[in-house]
Amino acid sequence: MIELISISVELGGKTILKDFSLGVGKGRKVAVFGESGAGKSTLLKTLIGMYVPVKGEIRFNDKPFVPEYMPEIRRQVFYLPQDVVPQGEETVEDFLMYPFGLHVNKSMSYSRDKTVQLFSSLRLPSDLLNQPLYKLSGGERKRVGLLQGLLLERSILLADEPTAGVDAANRDEIIQLLFNESDTTVIAVTHDESMIERSDVKVEMKHVNPPGEVA
């Protein structure tokens, strides 16, 4: 359960979210949509701790969202940013394997079989694994970014425009994969009509910063 209780977020002296409340139960699929600059990405970035609310409270499974609990909270979360930026010459497989070398994931191990299986679900050729990440198109990188999260099997996925830059034929697979696991909670910022339609909680953000729906 993720709870945002009357939070306000300010950036550069400007209020982006004001008294915003939202409750998301386990396994719910939330689509956050609305006009540009209404605070959709800010909401996701607040949920990873990048922005700290000036007012209100955030709770993850009854734990307060404070630095002391971040390692525990982050073990459950995967965040897919708007752009997946390649690091130097790293290959797609280097990128996918990277999180498994982190201390927080020491109990997990990378599975190539599972990667190949997910590649085929997302209609990505498995020979891309040995390609440098920077050679992939924006849409392909987005899908590879999502794969990183799926391989980690996190219970909460936060995705910023997961279908942006992806052609229509592949959008369905992304939405399918994101919304497939019944136990996985998903909060996705999107403009994609199909994704909004298939979500079970719809949160429309407006510049006036209204309180969100409660799932």
Partner: peptide
């Protein structure tokens, strides 16, 4: 310069050093 990528790593549990 790559704050977005850096933030994604932190969000998935990487420490600042990692």
């Amino acid at each position: 310069k790559d704050e977005s990528g850096y933030s994604a790593l932190v969000a998935m549990g990487a420490t600042v050093n990692e």
